[in-house]
């Protein structure tokens, strides 16, 4: 008579132990932390879809926890939620690494573009000093204003870089470089034109003096 009673007690204890499953709060915190780290690494910009998936998985896990929480204590089972949270943590780490890599790549490209833009603007400034202005030339002041505008725009590239917005920085730098080259070409054309006019004038002067 004593043995069945002990068995009953043990079964009850086991059932209670099983029924009192605790929500995976620590795992949830860890998963949320991992997602925040991925966000800080630039995942929403550089791996937007992967990041959206992570957020989707976290939402599903939270919903699962809420569903289990709503159940009678002895019937709660957080296994599925725990599996999802573990997957979130693993995937978030991968997304974090990949986003960091992509961000670094974008940064390198942006820095390269910035340097190219700086060099192009500098070359433009040098050329502006030699820019000819004659009767048929664009006013020097307009060219100077263009050069000043290009210099001022370089600070926008730096602002975008400082904000970690490398795509924008690269595009801004590219636009500056292209426009600088266009201004340089414009000055070169004017110089060629003036050079030709001067050569002709010198030739005429030489002709007159030899008479």
């Amino acid at each position: 008579m004593k043995q069945p009673f002990i068995c009953y007690l043990m079964v009850s204890a086991l059932a209670l132990a099983g029924g009192c499953a605790q929500p995976p709060t620590d795992k949830l915190t860890t998963a949320e932390k991992a997602i925040n780290e991925a966000r800080a690494a630039g995942a929403p910009t550089y791996l937007a879809e992967d990041f959206a998936k992570l957020e989707g998985m976290l939402t599903t896990a939270k919903r699962e926890i809420a569903e289990q929480d709503a159940k009678f204590a002895m019937l709660r089972d957080y296994d599925k939620a725990e599996q999802l949270l573990a997957a979130v943590e693993t995937d978030a780490a991968r997304v974090n690494t990949d986003a960091t890599k992509k961000k670094e790549e974008a940064k390198a490209v942006a820095l390269q573009a910035q340097q190219a833009a700086q060099e192009a603007v500098k070359a433009t400034q040098e050329l502006v000093k030699k820019a000819p202005v004659g009767k048929d030339q664009k006013p020097l002041q307009a060219i100077k204003a263009d050069a000043q505008g290009l210099i001022a725009s370089l600070s926008e590239v730096q602002t975008a870089l400082d904000a970690g917005d490398y795509r924008v920085a690269q595009i801004k730098a590219k636009a500056i470089q292209e426009k600088s080259l266009a201004v340089q070409a414009e000055i070169q054309r004017a110089m060629t034109k003036v050079g030709a006019a001067k050569a002709q004038k010198d030739k005429q002067v030489k002709k007159h003096s030899s008479r």
């Binding site: 959206a52 957020e55 989707g56 939402t59 599903t60 919903r63 599925k80 999802l84």
Partner: peptide
């Protein structure tokens, strides 16, 4: 770029897809 162009629909898909995998 589903996350950018259909954020609500994509989030629903992702959530359900994740739930299904689990």
């Amino acid at each position: 770029q589903g996350a950018e162009f259909a954020p609500t629909e994509y989030a629903r898909f992702v959530q359900d897809w994740a739930a299904l995998k689990g």
